[in-house]
């Protein structure tokens, strides 16, 4: 329940990396929650997108990376299209995915081997290609 807030933590290296990859200014978010309110998959998220932005800004890397929010994001851009501050939240989610996927441990979210043959038979290429672009390094 307690967090450290200090120069060391706030807007730390992790937050800056998210900003750099996404091209978004985390300080611009005023926490209105519009992104969470309109998100079609927020029901499955453990943190709302607005919370993820806040956690990033506070430098809470571990908490952010263990949340499922950015993995659940479907890049539908509903949040982006309605953000009153003009933040492209979908890009922030992508940036966090990439923070993980670009680690040298190659922590892929999805492996082809995990998908059943029956499913692979059924699923269209477009789903596989876009899925692997989002979930693997």
């Amino acid at each position: 329940m307690k967090i450290e807030v200090s120069r060391r933590k706030v807007h730390n290296e992790f937050a800056q990396k998210v900003e750099e990859i996404s091209g978004q200014n985390l300080f611009a978010c005023y926490q209105c929650g519009n992104c969470t309110a309109g998100c079609p998959v927020s029901f499955a998220m453990d943190l709302g997108p607005h919370q993820v932005i806040r956690f990033c800004l506070l430098g809470l890397e571990e908490e952010v990376l263990k949340s499922n929010t950015f993995w659940m994001c479907a890049s539908c851009l509903q949040c982006t299209s309605r953000c009153p501050k003009g933040l492209d939240i979908a890009r922030i989610m992508e940036a966090i995915r990439l923070v993980i996927l670009r680690k040298k441990e190659r922590l892929d979210r999805l492996e082809v081997a995990e998908l059943s043959e029956e499913f692979l038979e059924r699923v269209p290429q477009i789903a596989l290609i876009s899925g692997f672009r989002k979930f693997s390094s």
Binding site: V41, A44, M72, A74, R109, L110, L115, L128, G131, F132
Partner: peptide, 16 residues
Amino acid sequence: IECCGAFQSVGAPEVA
């Protein structure tokens, strides 16, 4: 104008 779940059909099929 809502989202079908997109590539979550491979990532989190229950969500899609």
